[in-house]
Each structure stands twice: as structure tokens, then as C-alpha cells.
Design a protein around this nucleic acid. Structure first.
Lengths: 283, 283
DNA sequence: GGGTACCGATACCCTCCGGGTATTGATCCG
DNA sequence: CGGATCAATACCCGGAGGGTATCGGTACCC
């Protein structure tokens, strides 16, 4: 199977319309129809149920859609990583590390310092992204390693090593009655009048229904808490970045957050291995 | 990047010889040279250092070799799974489960029974393979789910759920002095005169150096123990399959063995999800 | 040191595959 | 019934991909 055929099929599977799919691919409709027919013949499988009015995926078509998308991602990742590796000979970055913009600031700093101090290391490019995007960047080959936070981020199909675990704290406006307590429980903060927990976007970018304001990153979150419009539950380490108008109280029964370093399972690069080793020896 | 180009490059990267690679690919050498040049031009990266006598991988070439192989595996897996999904409409198997020939016999039986009893299930084809091969079969798309045993099998880049954990026992010829003991430690059995621990093959099929006989599967192992040529450390559940001329003694400090069910991380199939759910609820 | 074997690159030709335009045929809708 | 929509078919063309012959450079050997 050629990647061209796969791209064609994925386009049709997503548009469920040959004309639109062809347009999206930048080709005419007839060659697209032919390519799909040929693919079906070669696979010995009907991928699409089509009348002259509608196009639907068959069982086999659904499988090829999911599996094919993953395969195309792998091909693109291979291409991107190769390009980056080629640049690193002449140009700068040898390794790209991705993490959430708002997390693990101190851990990351220590990691980069420790790694840079090792002999034979390469420059590390740090990519900061929004929550939940690390996995995608890693899969797409835009990064070589990631710092993830369980259970928030999925460790989807990567190798991981645990780096540190921490409890969580409730982040509240300074002066809120609860800030006088030495600790709270989840039950204490889930139903606070006027201070709902915010909603984070799903992986597809939409927000789950519910009360609470929509947030996209940690800065927005803190802003909302400062404004007295929400309260939040965050990993303990966020305390270091907390402005003076916010206060934090440990939440005893909130799930523990584990920071892990993750990388693609087949990675054989010496640089990735070194960085992971450095990270696990940090503590 | 087309899979054809990738296959060509991987062949050259593995042979380090254009002639042999071309032969392996079933084409002539000149078109292969051209294809690689074209790939290098498109990527803007030198992949191979070549003189008229030798061919070596560059840094970027190594990256593309590793990443490209993984990508090709993903493409092949997509193709195979699609073919199987198409067959399952007309023909038999809807789901392929792979496990070691010698392990989890009882657990597997219970799982298959429980799954078959659920509504809306599909036929499950059971594939038995040698130790350490499950991951490969899963990656290649020859199977949809696998039963693995940590820490022996790598859970490489899959999603997993733990099913059960068990201790390990030393398997010895019946009548051996140690069989009188209620338990032993690793130290008791590592240096037994005439009863070395056998050697298992590495993933590449070669055996690590050392004393101990070479074994490829559990049957060979038991055979060797029965012959008084080796002793073994195996998961407790193997006791049920132990012939009368062998005896088992718990090893207190041997690593615990965890049976996990594993599947490709992007799998969206209802059948896989059902099977996993059934498995986790087994206990 | 020249001859030779080896090996990747180049030159050149040819075929067929992938893409384009024009049209058909089927289905739904007013 | 007529028009609109959409996938399939018919037909043509250009170029990408493959083959053969040959070149040019390097190591080896008598």
C-alpha cells in the first residue's frame, strides 16, 4: 500500500464525499474514484458503501481509516525527525522536548542543567504547548521526548519513566475562608458557591457540558481564580508560581500527579537515552 | 514520502550495499540509486555516506532507518487488519488474540468463556507463539490483542490493563533435595551444581553467552528440567501443567509476574474494547 | 605499477501509471 | 417529468519509475 493511496482513502473516509475529498487533496474527482477502486481491489475488501447519493464506511473501511491514519502519522513523523536530524548536523537543535507551558518548571530546569553537564550531549530545543497536546507533537515527530502528567495526559503508546509524584492543592482567592484550613477534601471544594471547577477541552477541542468557565491553559485558570470566578485543583509544584493574591491548600484526597518522561517506543537515539537516564537519576 | 521510497531506503540501510538491496527488492541497481538520491533531495538530507567501495549511514540516515521501519510496520499492520476485518464479514475470525503457547492457560480459558457469553461478540482467533513474539505480531497487525507477561515481555508502545499477578516457583526434578523445602530464595538455585538456569534468546534470535542450555519455549524448558540438565524459575500458574516427574517450590524473592492484556493504542474497535473490559472484570 | 574486479553513478530508452477533461448513469427533489 | 447532484466510465497525455549499457573511482593482487 502506498502512502498516496492511504492519504486518498483517509480523505474520502473523513469527507464521505468524493468531490470534496478530491478538492481537499488538490486533484480531480475521477482519479480519486479510480484510486479507491484500485485500493479496494488490491486489498480484496470493500471499504466504502456508495450509492450515487451517499458514501458510508464499511467495517473494513473503519479499520483502515483508524489504522491508516496512525500509519500516515508514523510516516510523517519519520520524515520530520529525519529532517530535524539532518539540520542538527549543521544547525542547532539535536533534540526537541515538549511539555506543558505551565508545568514542571523547576524539574525541567534541573533536567536541562543536569543533561547539559553530561559529556557528549546535544542542544535541546524546548517546545511549550497547551495541555494535552504533548502526545500529538510526539506522535507527529515534532518532538523526541515529552514531559507528561498522569493521569491528565495519556501515555498513549509511548515508553515512560516516572520522575516525580506530588499531591494536589486547591487554588483559591487569597482571603477565602477555606484558605485558613491546613487541608481540605475534594468534597469541600466541588460545590463552592460561585467558585465552580473550570472545564478543560477534550482532545477534539470541544468542551464538556457543565457549569464552570472554559479554560485552555494554566494562565487563564489562575486569572479566573484571581477574579473569584472559579477555584482550581493543581499539582503542588504550582505553588512556586502562585501570585500573592492567590492561596493554596492541600487537597488530601485528590489524585496524585505523576510527572513522567515519555518517548516513542522504537527510539534508538543516543541523545534520547541519555536524557532519559539523566532524568531518572535526577532525584 | 511514499512507502516505496521508504522500503527502498530501509533495504539499502540494512544491506549497506546498493546491489544486494536492489536484488532483495527485485529491481535493478540504477533505479534504486536514483530513488535514494531523489529521496535525499526531497528531504534535504544526506542519508548515506557512499564511496565507490563502501556505504555508511549518516546520523539522519540512522533516524530514518529506525523511524521508517516503524512507519512501514504501521502501514503493513493497517493493511493486514483491514484484510482481516473484510474477511470477518463473510468468513470467521473477528478478533485475533496472541499469547505465549505455554502461559495463562487457565486465565485465557476463563477470558474466552466470559467474552463469548457477552452479547454482541465476535469469534476470537487464538494465536499461540513463542516467548517474546507477541509484541511483534501485535505491531505487525497479525493480532489485535495480546496477553503479555511483565517483566518478561516488553509492553513496548501498547495500552495495557493488568489482569493478575503471581509469584514464581522453582521447577526442579522430582526428588531433588530442594523439593523438600517449603520455599527457597534465588540464591539457593542460581548456583546449583549441574542445574544451571537456561538461557532465553534475545529479541534478535541470538543467545546471550553463559553456561546454561539454550531454550526456545516452555516445553523445551520442562524437558531439560526433567532430564536433570537445568532448573527453572516460572510463574506459579505453570504448576497446573507440571508432569509428575517435576516438582515446584515457591521462590520468595523472585520478581512477581504480572499478566496484562495489551492492544495498539489507537485501536477503536468495539470488539477489542469489549474483550478488554471483560478481561478486567474477570477477577 | 598496471590489470582486474567491484560498485555506485550516469546516460538513455521505454512502458505504464497517475492525473486531467468530457460524459454517462443513477438517485433524489421539486 | 426535468433538473441537480454525485460517483463511475471513457479517453487522452505526460512523466515517473524501471530496464540495459556504460562510465568512473577504489581497493586488491600478482
Amino acid at each position: 500500500m502506498e502512502t498516496r493511496e492511504l492519504r486518498y482513502f483517509v480523505a474520502v473516509a473523513e469527507e464521505l464525499h468524493f468531490g470534496r475529498a478530491a478538492q481537499r487533496l488538490g486533484i480531480a474527482q475521477p482519479p480519486l474514484s479510480r484510486a479507491i477502486q484500485q485500493l479496494e481491489r488490491r486489498l480484496g475488501a470493500v471499504l466504502l458503501d456508495r450509492t450515487s447519493r451517499t458514501v458510508k464506511l464499511t467495517e473494513a473501511g473503519s479499520v483502515l481509516w483508524i489504522e491508516g491514519r496512525a500509519a500516515l502519522e508514523a510516516v510523517d513523523a519519520a520524515e520530520r525527525r529525519t529532517r530535524r536530524a539532518a539540520l542538527s548536523v549543521t544547525g542547532r537543535p539535536g533534540l526537541a522536548l515538549v511539555t506543558k507551558a505551565s508545568a514542571a518548571r523547576e524539574l525541567l530546569a534541573r533536567l536541562l542543567d543536569a543533561y547539559a553537564a553530561e559529556p557528549g550531549t546535544v542542544p535541546v530545543e524546548v517546545i511549550l504547548c497547551g495541555p494535552g497536546e504533548q502526545g500529538r507533537l510526539l506522535r507527529e515527530g515534532r518532538a523526541d521526548v515529552a514531559l507528561l502528567h498522569r493521569p491528565f495526559d495519556s501515555t498513549a503508546g509511548f515508553h515512560t519513566e516516572e520522575l516525580s509524584t506530588e499531591g494536589q492543592v486547591a487554588v483559591l482567592p487569597a482571603g477565602h475562608p477555606l484558605t485558613a484550613r491546613t487541608h481540605v477534601h475534594m468534597a469541600d471544594i466541588t460545590g463552592l458557591p460561585g467558585l465552580p471547577l473550570p472545564r478543560w477541552p477534550d482532545p477534539d477541542g470541544t468542551y464538556p457540558p457543565g457549569p464552570g468557565p472554559q479554560v485552555r491553559d494554566h494562565a487563564q485558570l489562575l486569572q479566573l481564580v484571581a477574579l473569584g470566578r472559579a477555584c482550581a485543583v493543581s499539582p503542588e509544584s504550582c505553588r512556586a508560581q502562585l501570585p500573592s493574591d492567590l492561596a493554596a491548600v492541600p487537597v488530601l484526597d485528590a489524585p496524585t500527579v505523576t510527572t513522567v518522561i515519555a518517548w516513542p517506543p522504537h527510539s534508538r537515539s543516543r541523545a534520547v537515552a541519555d536524557l532519559v537516564r539523566t532524568a531518572t537519576r535526577l532525584q
